[in-house]
Write a protein that binds this DNA or RNA. Structure first.
Length: 280
DNA sequence: TTGGCACCGGAGCGAGATCT
DNA sequence: AGATCTCGCTCCGGTGCCAA
């Protein structure tokens, strides 16, 4: 049925960002030309109008196209059914931000768990036809990712919005973001400060150390600044001398390999000497 | 029994180094 | 200068452990 756009409002906790991007403009153009071809899905709202379950982007595109109504299939759905339909319709999109995927997996998994109930021999077949499977395994199969990866995405929902936005903007990679999600909320706020003052975003190894210190209970703002102020590993684990610097200390016949061996021998002697001084 | 987590290792990728 | 190689980083799946 055709329903006025003004009577349709978003389903609760809708985690997907509806942006007026290029794809949206294309959809609006095609709606101007052909109308909305695939109806949206909605359910009656007890407070009046309808809750839009699937088709938020089509709704926005219809507004941009200057339409007053859009085709909608109205169904009686409980919260869990509505959540699953909403998430499924969005997971089909090719370009999904990490934050959207994270909240989508979380919401769908929770809805699936509630639908399945506590596992028993009688009811474990309730989740589709996947007899005897855990909700997380069913979800993993549906979205084509491992169970582990599903939980890693869900961890991202523990990030404060500012950090989550940086993940969406690819300023922070997925794995470091996963590690940072273990920091307490107030530590995450401090981290924003440290990142800003050091003009750096955490690498995986930095994020892992931040997590470790946080779990040990001694992660301070100063420590974050020190960690974020580090040179990247590629600069840290390498020391380069030009041959001009070293040549004058070695006979002409020495190869770079022999020079290196000699330097190490001398350093070992120096280390022993220091140890002896220390013991006295 | 399940969810959540740590840890490990292989694959793929990109930047920089080295070779031709 | 372009081709090739090397190495480190990141991603991601697998496995096993533990608490609820």
């Amino acid at each position: 049925m055709e329903i006025p756009l003004s009577e349709l409002h978003p389903f609760k906790d809708h985690p997907f960002k509806v942006k007026d991007d290029e794809a949206m403009m294309e959809t609006a153009d095609s709606i101007r030309q052909y109308g909305v071809l695939v109806p949206a899905i909605a359910r009656p709202d007890p407070n009046g109008g309808y809750e839009l379950v699937a088709g938020h982007r089509r709704h926005r595109a219809s507004e941009l196209a200057g339409k007053e109504t859009m085709p909608v299939i109205v169904r009686d759905l409980d919260d869990d059914q509505a959540t699953i339909i909403m998430v499924d319709s969005n997971l089909q999109r090719e370009s999904l931000l990490p934050s959207e995927r994270a909240f989508a997996y979380k919401m769908k998994l929770e809805a699936m768990k509630r639908q399945a109930g506590r596992p028993s021999k009688e009811n474990c077949s309730q989740v589709g036809n996947d007899f005897g499977k855990k909700s997380s395994e069913v979800l993993a199969e549906q979205v084509g990712q491992s169970k582990n990866q599903i939980f890693r995405y869900i961890r991202l929902t523990e990030l404060i919005p500012e950090l989550l936005d940086m993940v969406d903007e690819k300023k922070i990679a997925f794995n470091p973001a996963y590690e940072l999600s273990f920091l307490k909320k107030e530590e995450q706020v401090d981290l924003l400060d440290a990142m800003d003052s050091e003009q750096a975003t955490p690498s995986l190894s930095q994020a892992q150390r931040l997590k470790k210190y946080s779990q040990e209970g001694h992660l301070t703002l100063d420590m974050m600044r020190v960690i974020m102020g580090e040179e990247k590993k590629s600069d840290l684990d390498k020391i380069t001398f030009t041959s001009d610097t070293l040549r004058k200390y070695f006979p002409r016949s020495y190869t770079p390999q022999r020079m290196q061996e000699t330097i190490i021998k001398l350093l070992e002697q120096w280390q022993r000497k220091r140890q002896q001084q220390h013991e006295r």
